[in-house]
Computed example of a mutant assay.
Amino acid sequence: MWAKDIISPAQAVMLKILTQIFRAKHMSQETDSSAPNVHDPSTVTDTNPTPPPPHNKLNRFNTTIIKFIFSVFRQTVIPQTCALIFLQGQIRGGQATPEDFPLNLWDMERVYEGVYQFLELFAVLAEDPAWKKLLVEWEIVHELIALLKELESGIPKASLDKSRHRSAASSANPPTSTQQPAQVIVERPYDPAVNENGATTEAHDGEEDDGQGMIGAENPEDFEWRNLKKLVVLVLSSLVWKSLEVQNQVRENGGVEAILGCCSYDGNNPYIREHAIMCLRFLLEANADNQQIVRELEARQVIPSEVLDKRAYETFIDVNGRVGLKRKGGAPMMN
């Protein structure tokens, strides 16, 4: 039986707040750790400065919170989300019918927002070496690869024509000052509709919403999970960077092939190709087993040339300590 709320809106808000808290802590620690330049006397104010007290990010309270969040992610969120995506693929393949899909579009939006907030939090934690070590010990790679595989197999990539059509539709109806403001979306357990006798009834899944804008023409089984796959790849890139242990975990979970599948255009995940190439470069660095997989696949011409051409892309670290990718001599790739 499917839960109506895999992730409730309140839980998604709490995750977003926690993400901002941990991001602020990470930024403040980077600022505090900047030492004065000993070669410039003007920057040294005390010949015997007192070192600041150590900031223990992994105290018992913080660790307990993150461990609980991760356990929910592993035991509930990933299994049910992957099951939804798998069912979407079954419906597209004709092995199931749209009537078999258990959630409406309103429910899918709530699930999507919650999953995205989980991944946002893990993306922030993966940028910090101490939290990254803990996530690696918990083998979060298993859940990330499982989600990536389901998204690759169950959700079709949006073509360039579809993306252009979507952009053209948006530009054809630009917002103007004379337009009426959008109505506020109010959470409610069901969508009321008034029948011809004036009685209030429950609207069926997939019907047009009564002005609130929650249920549109799109079917819930066609939900696209936009940008979710790209975010998974970004988290994996942070985890696998300079980590032989994560390189091996990704390979053991079939992640090399899954990330290779992301090296093609997908209008639902802008710039995922560049991010996947960066992740692959990290996976191959000084890892003979992963390189062997690439050599075996190279004969089938499924490896992007940029992965093997060291002159094409290079990695860099931005001002916030995040690893990025750019063309040699060019500007950094956009997220």
Results as ranks from 00 to 15, higher is better:
residue 240 V to W: 01
residue 266 D to Q: 15
residue 135 L to A: 13
residue 9 P to D: 14
residue 249 Q to L: 10
residue 215 I to G: 04
residue 311 R to T: 13
residue 238 S to T: 04
residue 16 K to S: 08
residue 213 G to Y: 07
residue 237 S to T: 10
residue 22 F to G: 01
residue 266 D to F: 13
residue 203 A to F: 11
residue 235 V to S: 13
residue 220 P to V: 03
residue 248 N to S: 10
residue 55 H to Y: 12
residue 158 A to S: 14
residue 175 P to A: 07
residue 198 G to E: 05
residue 109 E to K: 13
residue 246 V to W: 02
residue 276 A to V: 04
residue 159 S to H: 08
residue 302 V to R: 04
residue 330 G to F: 07
residue 187 E to V: 10
residue 72 V to E: 12
residue 283 L to D: 04
residue 249 Q to D: 00
residue 40 D to R: 15
residue 298 E to W: 07
residue 189 P to M: 02
residue 94 G to A: 02
residue 19 T to Y: 01
residue 272 I to Y: 04
residue 157 K to S: 14
residue 128 D to I: 13
residue 240 V to Q: 03
residue 121 L to T: 12
residue 297 L to P: 01
residue 265 Y to C: 07
residue 291 Q to W: 02
residue 141 V to S: 07
residue 49 P to T: 08
residue 299 A to P: 00
residue 154 G to Q: 00
residue 321 G to T: 10
residue 112 Y to P: 00
residue 142 H to Y: 02
residue 227 N to E: 11
residue 332 P to K: 09
residue 268 N to S: 14
residue 25 K to V: 00
residue 122 F to H: 14
residue 56 N to L: 04
residue 313 Y to W: 05
residue 10 A to Q: 15
residue 305 S to Y: 03
residue 144 L to C: 06
residue 212 Q to P: 03
residue 282 F to M: 01
residue 139 E to N: 14
residue 304 P to F: 01
residue 301 Q to H: 03
residue 121 L to H: 06
residue 140 I to K: 10
residue 3 A to T: 10
residue 115 V to S: 01
residue 168 A to K: 15
residue 201 T to Q: 08
residue 254 G to A: 06
residue 226 R to I: 13
